[in-house]
């Protein structure tokens, strides 16, 4: 991470222990999960106390519970993480926060029973929300009896969170879906997240690496900074072995 990146995280406004661009804005849990992952892999990014506080705050937040509804197939009693406090749990914030808590465990930070149970429930939610043929969309697999389609980018993120659940049938189905789709993608975000996922799962990623590099050369991802950062991280695997996302 660049000096600018460190400074940005230090500058982020605390909301309790969570981080936000602006003290008045709702804290974005997906962003906080990602920030925690970076802080765990690069101790120079945030102080140990702030990292620890951030992880506790993440563990303490959960999505709202909605009544079970026949319009949706999922189990609404399961709670993962919402994008912002006071809303329902969705796949992307759940995946980043779940991965951060798992990373906390493997980094030797003491983990309480409460955090262990959040990890278990987060995994159950992701498994429950997977699309029938594998993969994930934003977080509804069936609405009004219709199977919804998975997205490549969200699938890659959810798979990162389930990388230690290789025997789980949902993981296998979703990985197969991603392997079938990754090279067909026309966006930097899908290619970059797929490449990170391929690295973590130790899949052959040469063709995907080449495709992403060409895509960057041709399109620069429409100037999207988040996508650019993810892509450059994915392309520079030799420097860091994708350790920020690997358990």
């Amino acid at each position: 991470m660049s000096e600018g990146g460190n400074a940005f995280l230090e500058r982020c406004q605390p909301q309790g222990a969570l981080l936000a661009d602006d003290p008045q804005q709702p804290a974005n849990l997906a962003f906080n999960g990602l920030a925690a992952l970076l802080a765990l892999s690069r101790p120079d990014v945030l102080s140990r106390a702030r990292t620890s506080g951030l992880l506790s705050a993440i563990a303490g937040l959960r999505g709202i519970v909605l009544p079970q509804a026949r319009e949706f197939r999922q189990d609404n009693s399961l709670t993962g993480w919402p994008w912002i406090d006071g809303t329902f749990s969705w796949v992307e914030p759940t995946s980043w926060c779940l991965l951060a808590l798992k990373k906390m465990k493997t980094s030797g930070v003491p983990v309480t029973g409460a955090i262990e149970s959040r990890i278990v429930e987060g995994e159950r939610l992701l498994i429950d929300r997977a699309c029938a043929a594998g993969g994930w969309n934003f977080g509804n697999s069936v609405v009004l009896g219709q199977d919804l389609r998975p997205y490549v980018s969200t699938t890659a993120i959810a798979l990162l969170a389930l990388q230690d659940r290789l025997r789980e049938p949902v993981t296998a189905r979703s990985l197969a879906y991603l392997q079938g789709q990754a090279l067909r993608q026309t966006s930097g975000m899908s290619l970059a997240l797929s490449l990170i996922c391929f690295r973590v799962f130790r899949l052959d990623s040469d063709a995907l690496q080449q495709r992403l590099a060409e895509h960057w050369r041709d399109r620069q991802f429409l100037g999207n900074l988040h996508v650019t950062a993810m892509a450059h991280y994915a392309l520079n695997h030799a420097q860091h072995k994708t350790s920020a996302f690997t358990l």
Binding site: N28, I64, P82, T87, P93, G139
Partner: peptide, 13 residues
Amino acid sequence: GAVYGWPKNVLHT
């Protein structure tokens, strides 16, 4: 979405 997420669930709730 960067503030409220995808989906913009605050509008639904």
